[in-house]
Write a protein that binds this DNA or RNA. Sequence first.
DNA 1: TCTTTGTGAAGCCGATCGGCTTCATATTTA
DNA 2: TAAATATGAAGCCGATCGGCTTCACAAAGA
Lengths: 106, 106
Amino acid sequence: MRRDIFQAIADPTRRAILVLIAVHAMTPNAIAEHFDITRQSISKHLRILSECDLLAQKQDGREIFYELKIDKMKEIDIWLDQFRKMMEERFQQLDQVLFTIKNKKK
Amino acid sequence: MRRDIFQAIADPTRRAILVLIAVHAMTPNAIAEHFDITRQSISKHLRILSECDLLAQKQDGREIFYELKIDKMKEIDIWLDQFRKMMEERFQQLDQVLFTIKNKKK
DNA sequence: TCTTTGTGAAGCCGATCGGCTTCATATTTA
DNA sequence: TAAATATGAAGCCGATCGGCTTCACAAAGA
């Protein structure tokens, strides 16, 4: 089974879960309240995210709080680095265009 | 059919294609030479990437050069912004730890 | 102890994925 | 014009996805 962070964030529900728990750790039930799908489906998503090492669990009695392992998100950032220089150059080009337009107005 | 940039980069072959053509525009045949799958499968990936607005085509006779629309990659970066502040804080914490270790050695 | 609550695991199902093969079409070249 | 080349489209197939329902189990509370 393919399990990597890119496949993990491919699903919109999983992306929403990540954003949710980024603020603070939450239990599966609390997370499920934010969606229109069953608690069990959320649980499945949590398992997938955990397998990708994106989540950490903290047990408190019978409740399990899931929290985001933010370091793992860095991996996406690192992959994006390959394109970052190109992206920045494009921005500079845009800046140049805006600069030229500005000067023409004078 | 779900078609967004996150689903587009979920496949490792598609990520490799993006990296390949980021350097310079390439034809489907040229791209396929870098992989162990058929030209037709590459073509399918190119169609998916195009549907996500990640690629631009430039026809030259019977050859079609695909090039990366780098601006679209920005969307991933923008999504990551939600976590960036947290990631930076973690780095600062790490810096603090390293700083403390460094001072203890003295 | 019995019931409620929080959770995970297993299995079902229709849709999609990512390969493949085959075919159609357009351009170039001999 | 005929053959070779570059490409896209359609359809097949096994695997996976993302929902669902059902069940098992442990912890907490009446």
